[in-house]
Measured scan of single mutants.
Amino acid sequence: KVMEIKLIKGPKGLGFSIAGGVGNQHIPGDNSIYVTKIIEGGAAHKDGRLQIGDKILAVNSVGLEDVMHEDAVAALKNTYDVVYLKVAKP
């Protein structure tokens, strides 16, 4: 199931950690970017929809399929206060 989640960045950013990407696979044979941690009190935690194990398909208009881990981190960092995440639920 794919959904779009709109998050408003807090003082600590979006409030979640990711793993995965080309050269840094979270699941062997899979280059996808996965949510590995939700920080308590952060934007994602308060919103409640993003969960550990969700796959991040895109940030705003930037696709995160088959990208390097660093590029995924940069895509999440290089955002304004309002961030749209395209997410696939497991």
Rank of each mutant, 00 (worst) to 15 (best):
E4D: 12
I5R: 00
K6V: 07
L7Q: 02
L7R: 00
I8R: 10
I8T: 14
K9R: 10
G10Q: 10
P11C: 10
P11A: 12
K12Y: 05
K12A: 05
K12R: 07
G13T: 04
G15K: 02
F16T: 01
F16I: 07
S17A: 14
S17D: 07
I18K: 00
G20Q: 03
G23V: 05
G23N: 06
H26N: 03
P28A: 08
G29D: 09
D30E: 13
N31Y: 03
N31E: 09
N31I: 03
I33K: 02
I33H: 06
Y34T: 05
Y34R: 05
V35D: 02
T36A: 12
K37V: 07
K37Q: 07
I38K: 01
I38H: 00
I39T: 13
E40G: 09
E40K: 06
E40Q: 09
E40M: 05
G41W: 05
G41H: 11
G41F: 06
G42T: 07
A43E: 13
A44C: 07
H45P: 01
K46N: 11
G48D: 04
L50M: 11
Q51H: 09
I52D: 10
I52N: 11
I52V: 11
G53A: 05
D54F: 07
K55L: 08
K55S: 06
I56K: 00
I56V: 14
L57T: 12
L57K: 07
L57P: 00
A58D: 06
A58V: 10
A58F: 12
V59M: 06
V59H: 00
N60T: 02
N60D: 08
S61F: 13
S61H: 11
V62K: 13
G63P: 11
G63R: 13
L64A: 03
L64C: 14
D66A: 12
V67S: 11
V67E: 04
V67C: 13
M68R: 10
H69F: 07
E70P: 10
D71E: 12
D71W: 07
D71N: 14
D71Y: 08
A72L: 03
A72K: 01
A72H: 01
V73A: 14
V73Q: 07
V73M: 09
A75R: 09
K77N: 10
N78Q: 12
N78Y: 08
T79Y: 06
Y80I: 14
Y80V: 10
D81Y: 08
V82L: 12
V83H: 04
Y84N: 14
Y84R: 12
Y84P: 04
L85Y: 00
L85V: 10
K86W: 05
A88M: 13
K89A: 09
P90L: 08
P90D: 09
